[in-house]
Amino acid sequence: MRIRNLRAFTLVELLVVIAIIGILVGLLLPAVQAAREAARRMQCTNNLKQIGLAVHTYVDAQRKFPSGFYFQGPGMANRGDRPRRLPGFGWTSSLLPYVEQSALFNQLNFNLGMSVAPNSLLVATVLPFAACPSAPNPSTNKKMGTTGTAFGFSDPGLAVTNYVGCGGSFSGSAYYSSTPVENKNGIIMEDTKFGFESVTDGTSNTLMAGETVYYGTGTDSSFLWDPTWFGHYQSSGGRADAPEAIMRVGQFRSNPPSIASADVKRNSFSSKHVGGSNFVLGDGSVHFIAQTVQHTETPSTAPVNWANIGVFQRLCSRNDGQVVSGFNN
């Protein structure tokens, strides 16, 4: 009888080893990817924490929350008198001295529009904490004009962010001219002048800012309300009023599917984190709120029937008088 040489591997043995290694790698890869996403989510949490702290320092210094959107610069004419709405700066610009960007803040001229030099060049500055690492942001700045116009293709554009203020519970809540008055119930809204005393629900029960993804391509104005740091400027029709670009509201649930209407996308908070998105509350604490949190998408009425309104919309309001619990799970 011939004795086989047992030192060598047979083909089947080799295949078995490969199969086992394949299974182990298959089990490990999703875990590694999940760990990477968890780390990115933590980085995002930290970014929002910095923004929350900056708002608190701002309130300490200025005795009021930063106005979400500056309809007009200091020294400019009254509202109705202006043919063009300048300058377009938002709440994030006011936070600059409180996030160690005093040098940048001092170079900006708040009497001029964002699209005017030197502002037009400075607002292209990308701040590292202004973007969520999970979000698919464009590598270029947002260019919202056409050739030859302000923020057109020849300009460096506006720096992109993923963090937007919470303007209130309803569509249009962030607008100064929003009616009825119950609409204007957020913390970060256009032309506001109030401090902590106006957050009657308690700062630990009210959303102050959250995150949103970038929908457009970054090279043209394919989505007008994509989030930008410093403020927003819409050159078409001489308009600079786009509070939706730097604020979001609670009218719609977070993380809408891609079939959602443009109106839903421009008003809702969204993220690339699985199952929800991060928010900083008025007290500066950051919470991951699930996209499944109760939401009724109730349109605004006067008076508002808060008893029938979902948890998420109540969280977005600073003065609804309702008890909110169990949102953080």
Partner: peptide, 17 residues
Amino acid sequence: AFVVFSPTSAGTTSYGR
């Protein structure tokens, strides 16, 4: 047309087109 189903008690909305 954009279709929205909003639950009245618990849960959140779904969208359709």
